[in-house]
Design a protein around this nucleic acid. Structure first.
Lengths: 231, 231, 231, 231
DNA sequence: AATGAATGAGTATTCATTCAT
DNA sequence: AATGAATGAATACTCATTCAT
């Protein structure tokens, strides 16, 4: 369930100079790139470092990715953009209240994205967007818009089932997105530097989810005799 | 009332040959640096541009700041830390419901920080924190912690007056902070690149405030007999 | 009569799997190299392109030619040296005035060399001679000297038949060679870039031939009563 | 009268690190560039070498010339394009027969251009034109067209004074240009490699000039008593 | 013989920083 | 104090060549 490829990156696995592993190369390079881009930033990472971490030479990297930017795109595509189908499927299959669905969604985001290196991509894109407008546009199309759409589908479900009240779909979606993005940013910036303002992600996310739901859920209409308030 | 230093930046103000107050130089350079760092990012801003905008030569800049990094430090120091006393005073004087206070606080943040260049500093810090750990620590002490404290005082006021229910002060504060920081980041990254995912700040903030308040406010609906509030 | 190898270059000719005559490989590679070297220049042509045009892989090219430079050598060797015997034979057979012979010679040069890819080789040699001294020496021995000799034989014929006056054989030959070489260079450099200074080859050659002949021909025009020869 | 800057290039004249010689720099760099571009070709010359030969660092070169191509443009401008006014003036002042004028023109070309490094520029442009179309266009506009114009003015003078017969101005000009360009090319390619086909420039030019004049001069001058042939 | 995956040397250009004046 | 000329480290990308298969 965890999406973090984890220790799959191994610098220089013992291999002869010309080991043929064409199929494995792109994945290894993408893994190495994710690692370093997240750790040091896009501009500060030299392609040579990426290649070295993947156990190949600089030239080989360019055999698979026409440019450094394309490498980043591949990282985004592999770890974020390409996974929305899977997430939409999960959406389809979910049974239970939409409030639970939203809680589940936020927890899963943490488990699969937030807690892994992948959240570093979001931070990266926010940091570098202005320097690489084409990348920013790509990220927006391939990640931001689908993400917003996914959230909106959840809200919509809540509305349709009479569970939620959502005055404005777009800003409602931001209400869900903002705390997650903030957490990703925080984790990969100040959160990685100091110990003074530590956030416990699970608590943070739980708190945010409940706060959100308080705003979203249809309140107990006075006519409802029993005071059981929808969470 | 506006926090934007505004017209204090003047490239080449008319001045007699040697009349310029030498003491003013650092300030002019800091202003110019704020302008450009926020506009173009830290790495993308050339020190020569900063010097030119401040009306001095590149060499002169290094007379006052030992490095580009130190210049960034000075910008952060000058424009964010040090304004909290004023804001705490405003807190003391506020009369009215704490819900209104929170709404006011968020709107004021937008008016004084979010909509001005200063929000760019927060974005800058998030982006560059890892590259400048010392600066990150400074920012945390001088900006983040005081900011968190201010928000917590508001929440505390609400609790004390029986208006709010706040299970955890720290995470409650994040609930307020996150949407604002997210907005600042967004504005200075993807928001400045594309037109697809536009956020109207006032609407966004209003939506976030109401969502927050829904979660914070004591629900006691007069008709509801007993307050068994879910969470 | 056409000297252009023409359709001998065929990328990926339909062929059964292993039927290709291995002996043909070098020739196909040389043809492809001529095509591309002339079209794009030596440095700007990638060996991979040559291999691809010849329908083989990059590695195969290096099986037959130890380096790109050697490939160029092979091109020069194959396409220029070795055709002089044929031209000398034509010289023997020519009947008519030597003036007509020179005109014919220049027109034929254009038809067989100048207008074809082969003229690109001369341009190539002029451009790259300094980088490949050994190749330059080869070119001189195998192409330049025989060419000069051929021209000198024509001039000699004119002198012997009382048609030409040639103060110095060597410089006389240059007088014929220079405009042809200039045309070859021009065609493959500035002439292929711009439209401002276009040369119509046939007109150019005709003009050069007549100018040359004016200088070469014995002026006494018996029929002209007044013996005052122009110049 | 000689235009060759000659030994004005001195690598590392004794000077302190930061010797200020702003005014002299461009000229020194242009001289160094001429030297190396002609000697090794444009692509094969590294900007660092040029800078080193001029006694400065790589960075300094880019202080004066925005790119390597611009450096070459400056070389062309300084040594060729910018000198046409001077040559047109000489044209105006010339007294004597147009035949003598043409002889003088060709000899002067050799003395000032052909025999110096400058002729290497023409060779360079012919060699590299296709790789650098923008440079080629520049060279055509700034050098080729003015040069053609200058030659045409001479021919025109001959026609107007009844000395020359020129059926077509354009091809007449090429008749003059071709042998000079051929000589420039030759000198900087095969001529610099081998000893077999040596050209003595003065003899070559004299021969070409007389051959040309034979074609240009109005023939039968009935009044010319006896066949005192020019030349 | 043939392949094509892998290599790594080679280079124009930028820009923070220095320092002679 | 102020200047601005000079420096040189730093880096993405290409492509001839190699070699395991």
């Amino acid at each position: 369930m965890s999406s973090d490829p984890g220790p799959s990156i191994h610098a220089h696995p013992a291999h002869a100079k010309h080991e043929r592993r064409k199929d494995a190369r792109p994945g290894e390079l993408v893994d190495a790139a994710l690692e370093l881009f997240v750790q040091k930033g896009f501009a500060a990472t030299r392609v040579e470092e990426v290649a070295h971490l993947a156990g190949v030479s600089k030239g080989t990297l360019f055999l698979y990715f026409p440019s450094k930017e394309d490498l980043l795109k591949a990282v985004v595509r592999h770890h974020l953009a390409g996974r929305f189908p899977e997430w939409h499927q999960e959406f389809e299959r979910f049974e239970g209240s939409t409030a639970d669905m939203l809680r589940y969604c936020m927890r899963m985001w943490w488990a699969r994205i937030g807690s892994t290196k992948i959240s570093g991509i979001s931070k990266l894109m926010m940091s570098e967007a202005r320097n690489f407008p084409e990348l920013a546009a790509f990220y927006e199309q391939e990640v931001v818009l689908p993400g917003m759409l996914l959230i909106q589908r959840i809200l919509q479900r809540g509305v349709e089932r009479g569970e939620f009240t959502v005055p404005d779909m777009k800003y409602g979606a931001y209400t869900v997105l903002a705390p997650l993005m903030f957490l990703a940013m925080w984790k990969h910036s100040l959160g990685s530097c100091s110990s003074a303002v530590q956030i416990d992600p699970e608590s943070y996310i739980a708190a945010q989810a409940e706060a959100l739901l308080a705003g979203l859920c249809v309140r107990s209409t006075p006519s409802a005799p029993s005071g059981s308030l929808a969470k």
